[in-house]
Amino acid sequence: MLIISNLNASIDGKSILKGISLEVKAGEVHAIMGPNGSGKSTLAAVLAGREFAQVTEGTVTYMGRNLLEMPAEDRAREGIFLGFQYPIEIPGVSMVNFMKTAVNEHRKYKGLEPLSASDFLKLMRDKKELVEIDSKLANRSVNEGFSGGEKKKNEIFQMAMLEPRLAILDETDSGLDIDALRIVANGVNKLKKPDNSTIVITHYQRLLDYIVPDVVHVLYDGRIVRTAGKELALELEAKGYDWIRKEVNNS
């Protein structure tokens, strides 16, 4: 589904990603872990089409197409979803209007008619239940005045509405208490289908108790320094990132 090959990217001339290669197959869950500043969020931003990072080398192929040539909105319509680490507040734009526009843009891209008002509201209702989001939130402006937990739940709600093929969740667990974490993780698990894939970016192993990865990568200083099964996450939790740091610096 996604093949990243020797990806290099920089921000304001400073090299952040230094040759990342990885492949995510349909149906897989990958976890990307790593200390602060290792390039995790930059990788997510490059995949979603954020323009502040410049790709200097390498390729990204998504569903057989050159992802880096596609504008952000087309990536979304092709099924890529980025769950933001810090969801943006947009005063004056209602959640309903936001989601209606987004869903219908996706439909238009696929050559489908826009949803009728009643079908759309039914879809909203179903998905709200699925991700256990307070229905009042949907009547407010996008993320405006939402608590940290509500914002993250709202990301999962949007994911439920858009049904992505590849979801990239950037530190979805940060700032969540244990109950909110469980709700968010349950939402992600419920949305899991045999052929869609997930990339979970996180600092901590905690989220991976709920969303069990097939593959764990450790990102350090812009490179993937280790790839293994889910047991790697537990090992990191026990030994900390210093262990990786020492190993990398020694070699």
Binding site: A48, G49, R50, E51, P71, A72, E73, R75, A76, R77, F81, L82, F84, P87, I88, I90, F98, T101, A102, E105, H106, Y109, V142, Q158, L162
Partner: peptide, 11 residues
């Protein structure tokens, strides 16, 4: 905010 909307498929 512009990127947030675009990342949901809105041109």
């Amino acid at each position: 905010a512009l990127f947030y909307l675009r990342s949901r498929g809105i041109d």
